[in-house]
Design a protein around this nucleic acid. Structure first.
Length: 575
RNA sequence: CGGGGCGUGGCGCAGUUGGCUAGCGCGCGCGGUUUGGGACCGCGAGGUCGGAGGUUCAAGUCCUCUCGCCCCGACCA
């Protein structure tokens, strides 16, 4: 390929609002171009990288026994109604109607469609297990797109769905976990596999594959050993070394001339440690029920865990006026003690963190201004509807294995979900005929990789001050040749090197532009192609062509007869 | 949806106490001199100043509405 004919050129002036490295470099180097917010053109170079990634994904999926297919982009709305996701996913779900008024969802994920196609067949236990997948455009009406390809409103995802018996599932899940590990390894990405929350996808457990990067949105914790978990689900040891009362004292209301923060309470009731305070946070869920979360003062509420415990999928903090009006309480002085009687038409659920179970003689507000309760004891003084782990992990806490948790941030490039019977329960006829002739629900898993986001993650990890540095496996071209000057010896040698390398199976980009050397070198760095070859009068005089790996500083002169051998050797050193 | 910033040739920007044919750098085209880390000279093309309405003798500049973009938050596979 001649660079002079390649559509999409590099640009020297960077967009000042392109703050994410991968976004800026991919744009500047001519790999992508924004259409409107969150929707991108993949230019010829960008598409080549995208395709390389897809091919690697496909190769490993096929090896794992999965089968590629294609589903329609428009999903009949009634399928999403069957699973109640027309509302649950309502914030993101794109909808469209045809001229007859038939409604469709522009799929953001494909569980319904894949269950639907499976149930059109009479599946027998003999068919199980199987895994079918697609590379499909996904549409998500994100509240805010950000970071170039990191969070977009339409993108290509490889989404796979396994159908099996419950007994077979563990092997299916493990198979995909191993496959993903191989995929990202081949691509050149090192990933952490974190336990995570499934969100509106459903199911009981899932894992995210996360590439460490500051610009990522996935916060997770690791104890340096076995334990790796997303912030949403991370658990930790809640024990502490503060002195604990052993004798239950009488519940008492005291004057509390203090501000409304936990620290104000701590000061007022000194020397009682924060671990004796009780923090109360009030939310309202999508069913207009009030959820009162109670947790030990030194901990914070994890809203994802709280949602699960309270069996809801949306929580909004309750405003001060409503705390007063609906609960007869006072922001900053809320207590679970006695609060139930004062609610006003709204159901109220008290969800207590399990950290309160060992708390003796706790301290919190007393549901009125400037009054606190002391000596609160759960069970005696109030009865939670639910006791669960609703605490947010923090760096510095210890894991249940006793090791210190570290906080990390990264880009979620893939995920695997156990779906179980979630969809097959909701959708009629998603069954197989078992050996004994009875119909049984299929057991499912689903597995996604965002191709564009993976591309951005690579760009994020592999780049330097001068531009991109593609790993060999995904580079749009393996070799970049710059011919300097229009001397006929240079042009002839370039031609022969180009055709030799091309017939040897390399993808070669020849920078044939009539521009000065500096510009070619700068662009070569920006483009990030693994090997740079320079053919010039100087290199010919020195005995051949010049070769250099993108990350290297120095080049070497190689006689053109030895070029292929040297190239092969050099490429082994590359990422 | 809340907070902040911003829309002026392809890109980056200047121009706002209203006032002349709306500028600059990069890029693009032509000619020339150059040629190993983004050269230089000359000429040239390219803009209904995001859109609509209004005020005014006069609007890129003031007013109203509106569309869109970026960052932070809420939300999220």
């Amino acid at each position: 390929m001649k660079y002079s004919k390649l559509f999409g050129r590099t640009s020297k002036t960077e967009g000042s609002d392109l703050k994410v490295t991968s976004h800026r470099l991919l744009t500047q180097a001519g790999y992508i171009r924004e259409s409107v917010a969150g929707r991108y053109f993949l230019l010829p170079l960008g598409l080549k990288v995208h395709q390389k990634i897809s091919e690697i994904v496909k190769k490993h999926m096929d090896t794992a026994g999965a089968q590629e297919m294609v589903s329609p982009v428009l999903h009949p709305m009634e399928l999403w109604r069957e699973t109640n996701r027309d509302n649950a996913a309502g914030y993101e779900l794109m909808q469209i109607a045809d001229r007859r008024g038939a409604e469709f969802a522009l799929g953001g994920t494909g569980e319904e469609m894949f269950v639907d196609v499976v149930r059109k067949f009479n599946i027998s236990y003999r068919d199980l297990p199987f895994n079918i997948y697609q590379f499909g455009n996904k549409y998500r009406d994100e509240l805010r797109a950000r970071g170039g390809l990191l969070r977009v409103r339409e993108f290509v995802m490889k989404d796979a769905y396994s159908f099996s018996t419950e007994q077979q599932f563990e092997a299916e899940y493990q198979n995909m976990m191993d496959t993903y590990t191989r995929i990202f390894k081949e691509i050149g990405l090192s990933t952490s596999i974190a336990e995570a929350d499934g969100g509106y996808i459903g199911g009981d457990y899932c894992h995210e594959f996360i590439v460490d990067a500051d610009v990522g949105e996935s916060v997770y914790f690791t104890d340096g050993g076995e334990y790796i978990a997303h912030e949403d689900v991370a658990v930790f040891d809640k024990s502490h070394s503060d002195e604990v009362h052993t004798e239950l004292a009488d519940l008492t209301i005291v004057d509390a001339d203090r501000g409304t923060t936990m620290d104000d309470g701590l000061k007022l009731h000194a020397p009682a440690p924060m671990t004796r305070h009780i923090k109360n946070v009030v939310y309202i869920n999508e069913r207009q029920e009030i959820v009162l979360a109670c947790i030990r003062g030194d901990l914070d509420v994890n809203e994802t865990k709280l949602q699960k415990a309270a069996d809801c999928h949306h929580l909004t903090p309750l405003a001060e006026e409503q705390i007063a009006e609906w609960m007869g309480s006072k922001a900053g002085f809320i207590s679970a003690v006695g609060v139930r009687e004062t609610t006003n038409g709204h159901k109220l659920a008290i969800v207590a963190d399990n950290s309160l179970e060992g708390l003796v003689n706790g301290i919190s507000g007393a549901n009125q201004d400037k009054k606190d309760y002391i000596n609160i004891n759960m069970a005696r003084d109030f009865t939670p509807d639910i006791v669960a782990d609703i605490a947010l992990a923090r760096a510095g806490y210890t894991s249940t294995d006793g090791k210190e948790l570290q906080e990390r941030v990264g880009i979620e490039v893939g995920n695997i979900f156990q779906l179980g019977y979630h969809y097959t329960d909701l959708m009629d006829g998603a069954t197989y005929t078992d050996e004994d002739g009875t119909q049984k629900n299929l057991y499912m898993g689903c597995y996604g990789i965002g191709i564009g986001r993976t591309m951005a993650a690579i760009a994020e990890v592999y780049s330097d001050d001068n531009g991109l540095v593609w790993p060999l496996a995904v580079a749009p071209y393996q070799v970049y040749i710059a011919s300097l000057g229009d001397d006929s010896a240079v042009l002839e040698l370039t031609e022969s090197v180009y055709s030799d390398l091309t017939s040897a199976g390399y993808e070669v980009l020849h920078d044939d532009r009539d521009v000065r050397p500096g510009e070619k070198f700068a662009d070569a760095d920006l483009l990030g192609i693994p090997v740079r070859i320079v053919v010039s009068g100087r290199s010919i005089e020195a005995g051949g062509v010049e070769i250099k790996l993108r990350p290297d500083k120095d080049s070497q002169i190689v006689p053109s007869a030895n070029l292929e051998k040297t190239l092969k050797k050099e490429l082994k050193r590359h990422i």
